[in-house]
Amino acid sequence: MSNGVTIGQAAAFVDVTVKTVRHYHKLGLVAEPERDGSGYRRYGSGELLRLVQVRTLAAAGVPLAEIGPLLDADAARFGAALADVGRQLTERIDELVARRATLDRLADGDRALLPDRACAILDRMPGLGFGPDHVAAQREALVLARALVPEGFDGFLDQLEHGLDDPDYVELAKRGQEAEAWEPDDPRIEELATAMADRYLANPALLGDHASRRAWAKASAQYELINNHREDRAPVAARLTALTEARLRSAGVPMPQR
């Protein structure tokens, strides 16, 4: 072995660090050469070949724990093991692509948390006269609804779309937006709640279909969280919602219980 190379030279030739070579020794992936007469370990062509093989497989994504058995396997087992590693790498690539897509959607605002259909609803609202605070509150409600009541989310989107297509409802909703500047005991809040309940009854599509109402009825705790998530910042809106729901219940419309 006197004509071999030192560990530092071996590491440099194979393009790894000395620490990595020692780690391969510790794992039993590469046999540690004997020391020569001067007390140095000398790496010959056999050790260098093994280092290259281990480094190449590790760089290809093969877990270090699997490299030893892989190198000692026959050709058939080696090919099957490489195919399995290839499948694992494909899964990791797909996962990374999905993560990258999420980052791209994050850069596009709402689209990381909401589907395109929900974003289209939010995009429509400013053009109909809804202010940024109202749109932000609706965005938060959509994100919470999708996460907390996924089975009722599409029905919720249906209701919102029907609402934006109904000019009378849009005017009432904008009036509700203005009401956020009123005092919580302003008598106009009750009048507006009555008008909103009447509009819901006149256009039942605003209340959602049977399947959607059933989904929300089963999720009363989640419904309350979604409805009240801005209660501290918009007490009038919370009172308006409660009064409207009370009037709908009195008219026989089933509503989630608070």
Rank of each mutant, 00 (worst) to 15 (best):
P150L: 13
A242C: 09
D84E: 15
H162S: 15
P115M: 12
L113R: 13
D110T: 05
R42W: 10
N203F: 03
Q9P: 00
Q159R: 15
D123L: 05
N228F: 06
L27W: 08
A60M: 14
G46C: 08
V143I: 14
T90N: 04
T102A: 15
A80R: 05
P184Q: 02
C119T: 04
D168E: 14
R247Y: 07
D108E: 10
R239N: 02
F13W: 08
L157D: 14
G109H: 01
D154M: 10
Q53E: 13
G28A: 12
G208Q: 11
L201P: 00
E151G: 13
K218G: 09
D104K: 03
G44T: 02
L122A: 12
A234T: 00
R247C: 02
D72R: 08
G61F: 04
L248M: 12
P69T: 01
I7F: 09
E95G: 15
R239S: 11
L51R: 07
D72K: 05
A80W: 04
E91K: 11
R175S: 15
G155V: 09
D94G: 14
D186E: 14
R175C: 06
R87Q: 11
R139I: 01
N203R: 13
A112P: 02
A11T: 12
A237N: 13
W216F: 13
Q257I: 10
K26I: 02
A242G: 13
L128W: 09
T244Q: 07
E183C: 06
E190C: 00
A112L: 01
A101Q: 05
E151K: 14
P235Q: 03
A76C: 04
V170K: 08
R199M: 02
T56P: 03
E47N: 01
A137V: 04
D186Y: 14
A59Y: 05
P184R: 00
P254F: 05
Y24F: 07
Y40Q: 04
V14S: 06
H210C: 07
H25D: 01
V253W: 03
P126L: 03
E161K: 09
G131N: 11
D74A: 07
A141C: 00
Q177A: 14
N3T: 13
R214A: 15
W216H: 12
Q88V: 03
Q138A: 08
R117P: 03
D116M: 05
G44Q: 04
T17H: 07
D185Y: 06
L144D: 01
G155W: 08
L70P: 04
D166P: 00
D209F: 00
S45P: 00
L225Y: 04
L128A: 14
L206Y: 04
R50K: 08
